[in-house]
Amino acid sequence: MSANPLHQFEIHKIYDLQVAGFDLSVTNHTMWLFIGVGLVSLLMLWGSRRAQLVPNRMQSFVEVTIDFIRTLTKETAGESALRFLPFIATLFLFLAAANVIGMVPGSFTATSQMLTTGFMALGVFMIVIGVGFYVQGLKFFKLFYPEGTPWWLAPLIVLLEVISFFARPATLALRLAANMMAGHILLKVFASFVIMLMVVLPPLALVPLLINVALTGLEIGVALLQAYIFTILTCVYLHDALHGH
């Protein structure tokens, strides 16, 4: 292991795969993404395996999770957004899986990669634009000129709205990747403190160790929270697309 706290974000090839000139090699990024997403998918499948009217524990867990996302969707994006529930539920579980599997020591956090989160944020952005024009037609442009704006403010407001609209995918991607990265760097830095102090002053090593234990709990919370934030913002944007401002 390297002492460099950024080493953990390094992608390396596991299986070389070139398709039509594209490098689609299986990497540690791919592997851990599939492990996390696979585990969560299995959990969901297991809980809905033999659904009973009176649920067992696994079924209850899956039900509570689905109901949580469903309520979130309904309250943030409205009743009509429920047809996007498969997408939104997958988005939340996918991000939660990728974020949380990154907490396993030695694993890789796919969502700490700006390219991955950027790709997902752009995907959400495209879907929102598509839905917006499909549902509202050209009225979707009203998003940039909120009703009740004085005409003399229009140039400024429209400019601001356009900027904030196109900043959405960037902020979405940055927020998630930065949070994941920062947390993992912090853990790594405190872990290296433990090792340094073990050499210099062993009893004192307990301090960063305990801090690291607390940070691990915090980071698991952040992992879930960031998945939640990404999802709820997607719902907010979908609300704009479905109902206007």
Binding site: D23, V26, F94
Partner: peptide, 16 residues
């Protein structure tokens, strides 16, 4: 690994 990241992320997301 731009293409690998995007491709496998999309595949994982699609499967899920």
């Amino acid at each position: 690994f731009l293409h690998s990241q995007i491709f496998w992320t999309a595949v994982a997301f699609g499967l899920m």
